[in-house]
Design a protein around this nucleic acid. Structure first.
Lengths: 204, 204, 204, 204
DNA sequence: AATGAATGAGGTTTCATTCAT
DNA sequence: AATGAATGAAACCTCATTCAT
């Protein structure tokens, strides 16, 4: 049975760090608690990461990087845009609102001012990719005559808004008593509403 | 000229606290910085508030309470629902994304886990009010035969999603280099898209 | 009875710091011990000094600055150079080898590598002043026909050597069992030997 | 080709330890840096030495022991005392101020309080030997009618003072910008001055 | 009412040292 | 013999909070 490799250890630490940071935010998370969760000493954390900040950065980067490929459909060759958009919304909302991902927007939003480069990384690596993909998808639909939309970029923001809403609702408000959100159902409705709007053209 | 009343002092402190908490979040904000901003000593803060937490709670409550009345139209008697909804979206997005309000969602999202009762208060006092108002507005539109919508509650969430998106974009991502968001324009488009989706004849 | 002024506090801290740093060197001295010696809490030290390093620097600078004026004779107008030199050697050796000063060369020597700017400060503020004064004194004697000396700068170093020897002996070696040094007597002899050499000319 | 013996390894470690301790002093030297310099793991250091302290002790003892035989002239049968003394001063100053020796006085002075037995060892093994040898040499000169000196022991201290001065100057102050010391020239002058002072006819 | 001074609790980080492999 | 991994014991430093004046 091989010994734990260094990267194994990093992974195990990041798993625990994720829980602590997700639970308490950067400042309130304690290295001791992370270490205890991993089952190692505080000092051992510093074998894998230079500092609490470095660990936090690594965690956020990793989660963002992990998450991205699962969000965007790999190719949408000749499929009709409405089906593609509906599929994207359902998939993305389910992914982002899932318990092991939803902490990310919360962390980014909460710590963005103290870790600007993480906010920037999230913005560049996740947000604009997603927004760009949605925008292209809408343009794809316009090209195919399926959508009418004056400003696809703005429409993409409306799409993203619903997804973020779901993530925050589940992660921020449900724990304090908010009525549980049926993510599938909301995805269905959000996609439906947006699609109806796009089919018809988003002008009053 | 009357002497400063105790509540004057509380207000002046809360104004400074708002800036510090908005800039750094709860944990990283320092009482010393707040005091310096007010121009008083650290100890004097404790004459007005029992603790940092109490100050934070008071601030958040106050801001929520202040914000609410400005969000909802007082009455929308016989006006057509589309115009009302459009007006609401434009007003709410402009208000919530304005520099002196946008920090609130960020704080709620960031500190919600550490201050569950604030998240709860925000949820109960702000979120469900807004969502409820929007929902009723949509129902109002359905009643008038202007809207068609299978689940008004879900549609209200889509409406709110766009608003939250705008607030977070301005407050979290613009400071780290995101392309500036034209809130008016996004409000216009968001409302337009939603309205197009809600218009009778919805084909979701 | 007035309250302790901030600079009083700094002084009291520096007095204690002197003892701890003198006893253990920079690295091994503990802030807790310094605080206990002053009779205050560790945290209070940080009201007066930014860091352990800052405290150490302040201490060394202060001691150097305090020491200097006591070393050099204010003026040596028309007095014969031999008497002046003898007086200087006796005074300087007694001062530098005294218990409350002798720790300084030891700290400078011991920590000079880790605090180069302190070594530099000591060199510039103390060493070259003293060496320069002695050198000028010797030149003064040459001018008066009392001394013969090929290189007064080097002779000054021989003078200083004896003084440093006394300081280190008392501070480093006496505590570990070295035969106690009669500083007065050594000063007398050191001055006598040097003077005899200078009178005669330092060539073999 | 024989395998490296345990004492080979000790030597290689001590060579590296010398550099680190010389550069940073005992407390600030890190076992990791020493190990890296040797090219072995930190743990391997403990196969050769019980502890950091033990290593430091071994190093200092070794250097002292190595240095001593090179300092004193083995025998000075019928040579004239002045030449012997001059030779000793030049040799000793050159040796002690040389880059690979000069760190020793610095370490002894700097760490003497924390390692009293090393200071004691240095005192007993090096200092009093050297001082004794010089003293005997002076007495030898007195006996031969070449020197006149009331207290040879004190004169020996003056001799040693110049040597220590040179070592500290080179090792402590030159690295922080002091004017480079021409050790040969200082030795020449120091010996000359002392000899002039010691020559029969001393009029101290 | 107001504050300068003080502190206790707690956090991150470092490093000599140990030990299973 | 050798080491990568792990740790326990500090040490420095911060900051919300208190209190005498």
């Amino acid at each position: 049975m091989p010994r734990a490799t260094p990267s194994d250890r990093r992974e195990r630490i990041l798993d625990s760090a994720r829980e602590e940071f997700a639970e308490r935010g950067f400042a309130a998370a304690r290295m001791e608690d992370i270490a205890r969760r991993v089952g190692i000493s505080r000092a051992a954390l510093y074998l894998a990461f230079d500092s609490k900040e470095a660990m936090f950065r690594a965690l956020v980067s990793e989660v963002i990087t992990e998450m991205m490929p699962t969000l965007l459909p790999s190719d949408y060759g000749s499929l009709p845009a409405p089906a593609l958009l509906r599929a994207f919304v359902k998939n993305a909302m389910k992914r982002i609102a899932s318990p092991d991902m939803a902490f990310l927007p919360r962390l980014i939003v909460g710590e963005g001012r103290n870790f600007p480069e993480l906010a920037r990384f999230y913005h560049e690596t996740a947000l604009i990719c997603v927004l760009g993909a949605v925008e292209r998808l809408i343009i794809h639909g316009i090209d195919r005559g399926e959508f009418a939309c004056a400003d696809p970029k703005m429409a993409a923001r409306s799409v993203a808004g619903g997804i973020i809403f779901a993530a925050l609702w589940r992660n921020v408000f449900e724990p304090v008593g908010a009525e549980p959100l049926d993510v599938e159902w909301m995805a269905e409705n959000h996609a439906g509403l947006i699609l109806a709007g796009l089919r018809r053209g988003d002008v009053a």
